[in-house]
Each structure stands twice: as C-alpha cells, then as structure tokens.
C-alpha cells in the first residue's frame, strides 16, 4: 500500500483535470475560448492558494503581481524588439522579468506587511494594486496612463504566423503549465517543512513561534512563491495573449475578487480546491453571462458569504474531511 510515489497521488486528479480540459478545448468546436478562461482561473486560484490558502492571510492587492508580470513581459518585448534574432528567447526573458518584478514587489510589500498580524496585513495590502497603478500613471513610468501596445513588436520578433499562434493557442497552454506547476509546488510545500510550518502558523501563530517556527520567514516564502506564479500568469494570460497593457486594467481589483471566490469556494489550503473552485466559478460565470448578464458578481458575493459562514473549508475541504482514511482519500488533499 505504502510506496514512494503515494505522497504524489493527489496530483493525479489535478493532471487528469488539466488534460481533460485540454482535450475538450482542442476537440470540441468552439470551446477553446471557454477552456482558456478556465485555465486562467485555475492558474490564478492555484497561485493565490499558495499564499491565502496555506497561510490564512488575505492579500487584497494580489492582482498587482499579475499586473507587474504583464509589464515584465511588455518591457521585454518592447525593449528587445530591435533584436528579432533572439526570437522566442525574448519571451523567455519576458517570463524571467515578470518573475523578478513580482518577486521584488512581493519582497517589498512582504518585508513591511508580513511582520504584521492578519488584520494589519490585510489593511496594508488593500492599496497595493491601486498604489502601484497610481505610481505608474503618476510618475509616467512605462508610458504612464497611456499603457503599452506591442502587437507589432511581437509580430516582428516571432513572425506573423508564430505570433498569432502564440496569442490564440500557446499563451493558453503556457497558462495550463503554470497552473500545473503551481499545483506541483503546492504539493511539494505541503509535504515539506514549510508546509507544516504554514499549517501551524495559520492555526496559531504564537504557538507556532514557541514551537520554534520562524513565522515571518515562512510567510514571506509563501508570499513570494505565490506572487511569482501570479507574475507568470500575467505575463502569459495577459501580455502574450493580448499584447497590450493599460494600468487600470491590469491592476483591477476585480481579479483579486475572482481569486478569492475561486480559492474559498474550492477549498483554501487544499491542493485540488483552486481547480474545483475555478471550474465551478468559470463555468457558472459563463452561463450566467448568457442567461443573466451582469449579475454574476452579485451571486458570487452571496455565495462566498454563504460559504464562509456555513462551510469555510470549501467544497474540496468538505470532501477531504469526508474521505479521510478511505481509498479515495489518498487522492484528495
């Protein structure tokens, strides 16, 4: 029963779900757009969960990391447009830049805010996205409020054909891989000391300190990891898919709201939760926008309050509790 791979069984449903999404999107006519949206939500939730789910801290400014990631890719493509011979290398540099920028921002915010307790941390993050947006606009950074449009540069660098395939297909597949990778990292964290430390500090920070856990260190690690993934999501799902960036769009709090809905609905701190949350949210948003346009956030705000009051562990949290110590249980954490 017990073998060396068994700790990794919980990845199986995750990979199966991603694979199924991919197959449906590629083979059922007209579904790729929906699938791409779902993949974005999966990756967003998976990345956000590493922080919110594992530490129990809320970052209301989370979208800022997607935003700076988008800028990272934009800066690489516009800045290196004169070296088209680098080709896809520029995209790779863009991802590196996205990660660096998200890491820097999260380190700066984390160094201040993560020394504070829950409520104060949340307060400190409330303005991060707006603050960064206003810094870009106010100080005229990177073209300020007029943003950056770089479709032409992308075409030049990759050639028209490849560029259009990147925008319509490869960007989404990259998002799929980012989501899957975030899930793998989540599981690795869960199985190592950091995961135990995060669980402990999420439950009782003072007791965790007394047990020898350097809580600030682990919180910052989770924060930076989560932020870097968000940066790559921004770089792929926004910058590559739609090659332009406008400050009000990429720092829009709406995406933080969606990330919260996805993680809480699916199950904060579980491996499978963000994926389940993303599918429920994405599919119902899709149908709501057809049948009851304009009310999806209203409904989900109600749903989230209901979830928090009645089953704060989320859908997967409940399933996990019910299946603990059963055969299915070893696949669900």
């Amino acid at each position: 029963m017990k073998n060396r791979l068994s700790p990794y069984y919980p990845l199986l449903p995750v990979f199966v779900a991603y694979f199924a999404l991919f197959l449906v999107g590629r083979n059922v006519e007209g579904t790729w757009q929906l699938v791409a949206t779902l993949l974005f939500y999966c990756a967003l939730g998976q990345a956000f969960n590493i922080f919110l789910g594992m530490t129990g801290y809320v970052d209301f400014g989370y979208v800022a990391f997607l935003g700076v990631g988008t800028y990272g890719m934009a800066i690489a493509i516009t800045g290196l447009a004169n070296f088209p011979q680098l080709g896809l290398g520029i995209v790779a540099i863009g991802f590196v830049l996205a990660i660096i920028m998200a890491t820097l921002l999260s380190t700066a915010v984390g160094a201040v805010a993560l020394r504070l307790r829950g409520a104060y941390f949340a307060i400190a993050t409330i303005g991060v996205n707006e603050g960064f947006r206003f810094l870009i606009e106010g100080a005229n950074l990177w073209n300020g409020s007029s943003g950056m449009i770089f479709t032409a540069q992308l075409n030049e660098i990759l050639g028209r054909d490849l560029a259009s395939r990147v925008m319509t297909l490869w960007a989404d597949i990259l998002v799929l891989f980012i989501g899957a990778l975030a899930a793998v990292v989540t599981l690795l964290y869960m199985k190592s000391k950091i995961g135990y430390a995060l669980t402990a500090l999420r439950e009782d920070e003072d007791a965790a300190k007394v047990m020898g856990i350097n809580v600030t260190k682990y919180k910052i690690t989770a924060f930076i990891t989560s932020a870097s993934f968000a940066g790559t999501v921004g770089a792929a799902a926004w910058a590559l898919k739609t090659p332009y960036v406008f400050p009000p769009e990429v720092f829009e709090i709406h995406y933080t709201i969606e990330a919260i809905i996805i993680v809480m609905l699916g199950g904060a701190g579980t491996l499978l939760g963000p994926l389940v949350g993303a599918l429920i949210y994405g599919v119902s948003k899709y149908y709501l926008s057809i049948f009851l346009p304009g009310v999806q956030l209203f409904i989900f705000a109600l749903v989230i309050i209901f979830v928090i009051v009645t089953f704060p562990e989320g859908v997967v949290g409940v399933i996990k509790r019910k299946t603990r110590n059963t055969a299915i249980g070893q696949y669900i954490i």
């Binding site: 919110l52 129990g56 801290y57 809320v58 209301f60 829950g118 409520a119 949340a122 999420r202 709201i257 919260i260 809480m264 904060a268 304009g294 009310v295 956030l297 209203f298 705000a301 109600l302 989230i304 309050i305 928090i308 009051v309 704060p312």
Partner: peptide
C-alpha cells in the same frame, strides 16, 4: 464569525462590499 479565524471576517466584509456594489449597480 466572531470566533472564526480572522480570514473569515475579512473576506465576509469584503464580499459584503462587493454585494452592495453589485446591488446598487443593478
């Protein structure tokens, strides 16, 4: 939620704000 982890009231008040915004918008 008063005895629940802080996360709960943070997210609940946040969601209440969203709910109000959407209601007024409708």
């Amino acid at each position: 939620l008063l005895n629940a982890p802080e996360l709960a009231t943070l997210l609940a008040t946040f969601s209440a704000g969203v709910l109000l915004e959407e209601t007024v918008k409708m």
